[in-house]
Simulated scan of single mutants.
Amino acid sequence: MEWLRVQRGDAPLVIAFPHGGTNLAGLDDQFVSPWHARIDTDWWIAELYAFAADMGATLVATDISRSVIDMNRDPSGASLYPGQATTELCPTTTFDGELLYRFGEPDEAEIMQRLHSYHRPYHDTLTAELDRLKDAHGKIVLYDAHSIRSHVPRLFHGELPLFNIGTNGGTTAAPELETIIANICAASGKSHVVNGRFKGGWTTRHYGRPDDDVHAIQMELAQRGYMTEPATFTEANWPTPIDPDPAILTTLRQSIAAALDFAKGRQ
């Protein structure tokens, strides 16, 4: 599966990248435009965390665009945020509510095909890596890495905090891990929130079993921390190159190191 990239490490930490892909799976002509289908990508997210491989983390990334199928959605199609604006398992609109498809939405048969071809293999692979490390260490952390534009009025009001930590209200990870990561973000002097608008998607909710020593946490970064966000997003100016604030990189490195220490039983 050329669209699925796994970089194996032996430390008790898996970092997942479900939304960094831009591969439209041959469906380019079905979308309003290829750029339109890619605008909500978690741009450069795997590159941002590339340092974690040298720390022994296992990295699991898909190259399939979230517009084809969202690896961080419940495969049943159930909403993660009932009553709030969101996108579906196979999205039909952008974050801004603009239609993605030229001639109609994917039908049930097409959704099932994408689920079988991409969503299930991605999660089968993620499960296998978690099981491997759980057998080796007994206690592990899954860190689900995301990013999003700082202003998306349809999804949230105003400017999103830079660091958005999600544990589904404290149910997917031990309170100590949540507190450690939150304290690191607070010490950066940048804005942060715990279980705010983004409480963790299907990945953290599905895998997080703190009572069984599988701790899952989501980090949603506002993209202004490592990209220049234009006032108006167009095909000519988006995405911009990766250009991380050194303070952001330091905070991410400290967060990954802290997650590793937590999994190893160190303070």
Rank of each mutant, 00 (worst) to 15 (best):
W3R: 08
R5T: 14
G9P: 08
D10S: 15
A11G: 02
A11M: 12
L13Q: 07
N23R: 09
F31E: 07
S33C: 11
A37Y: 06
I39S: 00
D42K: 06
D42F: 00
D42T: 04
W44G: 01
I45S: 11
E47Q: 15
L48V: 04
A50Y: 03
A52Y: 11
A52R: 13
A53E: 15
M55A: 15
G56N: 10
A57C: 08
T58Q: 13
T58Y: 05
L59C: 11
L59D: 02
V68C: 03
M71E: 07
R73F: 02
P75C: 03
G77W: 02
A78Y: 02
A78I: 01
S79A: 13
Y81W: 14
L89W: 03
F95I: 02
F103K: 15
G104K: 08
E110W: 08
R114K: 10
L115C: 06
S117E: 12
S117M: 11
L126K: 08
K139V: 06
I140D: 02
Y143D: 06
I148A: 06
H151S: 06
H151R: 15
H157T: 15
I165E: 02
T167W: 04
A174L: 13
P175I: 07
P175R: 14
P175T: 05
L177M: 11
L177G: 07
E178W: 04
I181M: 10
I181C: 10
I181D: 07
A182M: 05
N183W: 04
I184W: 00
I184M: 12
S188F: 06
G189Y: 12
K190A: 12
G200W: 03
G201P: 01
T203Q: 12
H206W: 13
Y207E: 11
V214D: 05
A216D: 10
E220I: 00
A222W: 01
P230V: 04
A231M: 12
T232E: 14
I242Q: 14
P244D: 00
D245Q: 04
I248C: 01
L252N: 11
I256K: 09
A257E: 14
L260P: 01
F262Q: 09
F262E: 10
A263I: 03
K264H: 13
